[in-house]
């Protein structure tokens, strides 16, 4: 069983976990179910967590693993992405053009290939370190970096609405 401090530490991550789950699952209900499964597994695997500072990456890793196992059963539909409605929540006083641009950025993000989208979302939206993303997605850090690079190129291309030649790879 977890002590009360650990409970707080885990609960503090629930909003971020839900956001991540929503970017993976088909709908908000599936997403919350994924979070619930994650918490269940976290409770039973608590002893496997070594570094107390890494609660977030550990929880995200469990969630992403569960998603991949579930994902083989459920056919994920690409078009549905909760962030699509980002612009709807815009502060009415904010610049309309700006709000549109922000909504565009999120729907463009939703159109990226899954691996790239997840890398960019974890870094840019969730503010994770590259090491944490490598841990969550279980790939070497070099892979994270190249996914990020491709994600940003593709996002830019999507936002420009045209096929722009990606900049040459650096030596």
């Amino acid at each position: 069983m977890l002590g009360s401090v650990s409970d707080l530490e885990i609960e503090a991550q629930i909003p971020a976990l839900r956001r991540f789950a929503r970017s993976l699952a088909r709908n908000p209900d599936d997403a919350d179910e994924l979070v619930q499964d994650t918490l269940l597994q976290a409770l039973s695997r608590w002893r496997q967590l070594r570094k107390p500072g890494s609660v977030r990456a550990w929880l995200f890793q469990i969630l992403f693993n569960l998603h991949r196992t579930h994902g083989r059963r459920r056919q994920r539909d690409l078009a549905r992405f909760d962030h699509d409605d980002g612009a709807d929540h815009a502060d009415p006083s904010s610049d309309q053009h700006q709000a549109l641009h922000l909504g565009d950025a999120l729907s463009a993000l939703a159109r990226l290939p899954q691996d790239q989208r997840i890398a960019l979302e974890l870094v840019a939206v969730q503010g994770m370190t590259y090491e944490e993303v490598a841990r969550v997605t279980e790939v070497p850090i070099g892979t994270v970096m190249s996914r990020l690079s491709r994600a940003r190129e593709r996002l830019r291309t999507e936002l420009e609405g045209s096929n722009v030649t990606p900049f040459r790879r650096l030596k």
Binding site: M1, L2, D7, I10, E11, I14, P15, R18, R19, D32, V35, Q36, L39, L40, L43, H83, G86, A87, H89, A90, D91, A99, H101, L102, G103, D104, A105, L106, L109, L120, E121, A124, V125, G127, R152, L155, R156, L159
Partner: peptide, 27 residues
């Protein structure tokens, strides 16, 4: 673009956590 993504994500109001996701309930 990165700033736009972050700003857009922050525009979403934080939703209250449903009771089903409380640790006491999961436990």
């Amino acid at each position: 673009d990165v700033h736009a993504l972050r700003a857009a994500a922050q525009l979403r109001p934080p939703e209250p956590i449903p009771a089903s996701l409380r640790l006491s309930e999961v436990r």
